[in-house]
Amino acid sequence: MIRQRSAIGLLLGPFVVLLLVVFLAPTLYAVYLSFFARSHTGLGFGNGQTAFVGLRNYGVVLTDPSFLQGVGVTLLYSAVFIPLVIIGALALALLFDSGVVRFRQFSQTLLFLPHAVPGIIATVIWLYLYTPGISPVIDLMDGLDLHVDFLGLEMVVPSLVNIALWSGLGYTTVIFFAALRAVPHEVVEAAAIDGAGPVRSAVTIKVPLIRGTIVTVLIFTVIGALQLFTEPMLLSKVTPLIGPRFTPNMYIYDAAFARNNHSLASAASVLLLIVCCLLSFAVTRGAARGSRS
C-alpha cells in the first residue's frame, strides 16, 4: 500500500511540479496582474501606483478595436486553415493507408520533414519566397504572366495559411496514419467482402473508427490557431500591413513590450486562456455527444 502510494508520488511528482511551476503559478500571477495594475489619476504624471483596478483592463481589451480586429483575423485564419489541414491530412493518411501510394515511407518522411523545421525558420524561408525581387517563385510566376503580391492586403491570410499548412500537414497526416494502422484488419476486410470499395470503406469504416484521434487533433489545431504568433510576428517586420496587434497573441506581446502595460497584457492573456478552455471543452463535449448517438 505504502509502496504503491510512493510510486504514485514518484511518477506523478515531476508532472505536478512542472504543472504548478510553469502553468498554474504564471496563470495565477497573470490573473493577479490583470486586477492589480499600475494606475494613475488625472493627467497621470507623478501619481502612478499599483492599485486594485477591478475589471478595468478586461473592459479595455474587449472594447479595443485592434484586439477585436485581431480576433476577427484569427477567426478568418481558423476558418480557412482548420478545414484544410484536417481534411487534407485525413485524405493523405487514407491514401497512405489504402496502399495506393508507392514509396510510402519515403513520401511520408518527405511530407513530415517540414515539421522538423522550427516555425521561425519556416517563416524566414517563406518570407524569402514571398518577397518580390529576390523570390525565384515570383520570378517564375512573372514569367508566366501571373502577378501575385503575396504580402499584399488580400494575400496576407492565405500566405499565413500556406506557411502553417506546409509545416503542419505532414505532422497531422502521420498522427492520422498511425491511428488508421490501429484499425482492425478484419473490420476493413469484412467491409471489402460486403462489397465496399476503397472510398466507401474509408469514409464509412475507417474515419468513424479514428474519430477520437480526429477530435484530439482538432482541439490542438484550434488552440494552435488561436495562439497564432510566430509567423505573423515575423511577417509584421517586413510588411506594415501586418500590424503589431495582428492576432490576439501579438496584441498581448505588444501590450507588454511596446506599451509597457503588463496588466493589460495579462487581462488579454486570461481572456485568451478562457476562450481556449471553453473551446476545448465544447469540442470534446460535442464529439462525445456525437459518438453516443
Binding site: A37, H40, T41, L43, G44, R56, D64, S66, N261
Partner: peptide, 17 residues
Amino acid sequence: RDAEAETLPDMRSLGLS
C-alpha cells in the same frame, strides 16, 4: 481616426482621465 481609436483604450487602461 483608426490610430486615435487604438490609442484611447491604452490611455484608459492606465487610469488616465
